[in-house]
Design a protein around this nucleic acid. Structure first.
Length: 428
RNA sequence: GUGGGUGUAGCUCAGUCGGUAGAGCACUUGGUUGUGGUCCAAGGGGCCGCGGGUUCGAGUCCCGUCACUCACCCCA
């Protein structure tokens, strides 16, 4: 059975039961934002290519060599979004949300696309959950965003990760620091490729992991040591707020991000069980972004959390996030007449809010009972000619094996009651 | 984009010195009339990633290619 087609390179299919885990993870990562007053936003999967060139930055790898860009039939250059912030911010500006109450707080989820060399934890299509808080420059808001992400991870039971935090400075202090760094880098013995990178975006050389490069960078000037007074104060306030909120972090003065728009607060959540692709989420402040894409000068802060990588991290930590139960009730019909009746009963149960299924096809009793067992149902409904004559249905508790008879007429009501009772006992 | 490793059943894998393929799990059926999970038995399912080459003969050796994977890079 050789498949004619397979999922494109760098993509993968999500099927039950893993797909259920995925939904749970996305749900858990976004829940804290919903509880913090963030509204749901959905923007297009593709945007004007220029939006990403101007927003994310043409010097970044993401824009310069990883975008899925194409011309549509109208000759427009469009790009599958490589990240979420640019589109959300564009929508905020386009719809005049900055004229309303600030900050504008939005959360979103969806796929991002980057043409990268695939490896585990790195895909050409990956899903992020993100938040953006725009329009207010308040270090407490930076802390809120960070804590929201941390809360999401914790709610899944994740613990083998650290929060890395730094400040990259602002338009006032970064240029001077940049000059300092460039001068330092010029004195080093670097390969041509790294030199090129240093010329385009010197900051990115700081977190090079190659030992021969890293060793030379030991004495490099680092951003947090060259902040202006305002940035220093801002960074101190962010840390104080995180301390107040009890969120642990590690100072990571060499942390840089691949997207040009970050200013001041910058952070990354690094998981310890994932190998090279260890970043399960990251973000920071982007006070110049909105102006860069044609809006008024406006501060903003946000994050993107990798749902795919968070799934991998949960697997590494042995966390089963979803119960394997598909339905609560499973119908086992014996004969055609019984099947007609069960078809209706199961439909009524579903309408009453009970997850229910039944044995389709031509399975014998034994096979149908087996299917009931595999479905994860708590109750099996056995209906045959004998029961039909009595106007009853056999209800079997699949964990205890106890079986009782129930009047067919009010079976739905009694089953709903019975399931509510047992689930209450379980939550006690 | 650069380097290394691996591709055999749906999944995890075995397959000797080259002689046209196996296990466990999963699935289906059966173990006398209408009861699942454990057990026993049977069955279905594979162009050995794909294409070339060497050979009387290739899952096995060689080359290419594609995919996956690990590191660099990049980042979620």
């Amino acid at each position: 059975m050789s498949a004619k087609f397979s999922a494109p390179k760098g993509t993968y299919d999500l099927l039950p039961p893993r797909s259920e885990d995925f939904r749970r993870v996305a749900e858990a990562l976004s829940a804290p934002a919903r509880r913090a007053g963030y509204g749901y936003a959905q923007t297009p999967t593709f945007e004007d290519t220029a939006l990403f060139e101007r927003g994310v930055g043409e010097s970044t790898d993401v824009v310069s060599k990883e975008m899925y860009t194409f011309l549509d039939k109208g000759g427009r250059s469009l790009t599958l979004r490589p990240e979420g912030t640019a589109g959300i911010v564009r929508a905020i500006v386009e719809h005049g949300l900055l004229g309303g109450q600030l900050p504008v707080k939005l959360w979103y989820t969806g796929p991002n696309f980057r043409y990268e060399r695939p490896q585990s934890g790195r895909y050409r299509q990956h899903v992020q959950v993100g938040v953006e808080a725009v329009g207010v420059d308040d270090p407490d808001l930076d802390a809120e965003v960070v804590v929201l992400a941390d809360t999401g991870y914790r709610s899944l039971g994740l613990s083998a990760y650290t929060l890395q935090l730094t400040s990259l400075g602002c338009a006032a202090c970064r240029p001077a620091y940049r000059v300092l760094l460039v001068a330092f880098l010029e004195g080093l013995d670097l390969d041509a490729d790294t030199r090129r990178r240093a010329a385009i975006n010197p900051l990115r050389v700081l977190d090079d992991k190659r030992p021969e490069v890293a060793a030379q960078l030991a004495g490099a000037p680092l951003p947090p040591d060259h902040l202006c007074a305002a940035c220093t104060a801002h960074f101190a306030d962010v840390r104080a707020a995180l301390d107040l909120l009890g969120t642990a972090y590690e100072l990571a003065p060499r942390l840089v991000r691949g997207l040009d728009y970050y200013t001041r607060t910058t952070f990354e959540f690094v998981h310890h069980g994932l190998g090279a692709q260890a970043s399960i989420g990251g973000g920071g402040r982007y006070d110049g972004l909105i102006e860069a894409i044609g809006g008024p000068p406006t501060p903003g802060v946000g994050f993107g959390l990798g749902v795919d990588r968070t799934m991998l991290a949960a697997a590494v930590e042995g966390l089963v996030v979803s119960p394997r139960q598909r339905v609560e009730v499973y119908g086992v019909p014996l004969g055609e007449a019984a099947k007609r009746r069960l078809l209706v009963l199961v439909d009524e149960l579903r309408r009453a809010g009970v997850a229910a299924d039944l044995a389709y096809g031509t399975r014998r009793l034994k096979g149908a009972m087996k299917a009931a067992d595999r479905s994860g149902a708590r109750l099996a409904l056995v209906l045959g000619d004998r029961e039909l004559e009595e106007g009853a249905v056999q209800v079997k508790d699949l964990s205890s094996g106890d079986q009782t008879s129930l009047a067919l007429d009010d079976a739905v009501a009694s089953l709903v009651g019975r399931l509510a009772e047992t689930s209450m006992e379980e939550t006690r």
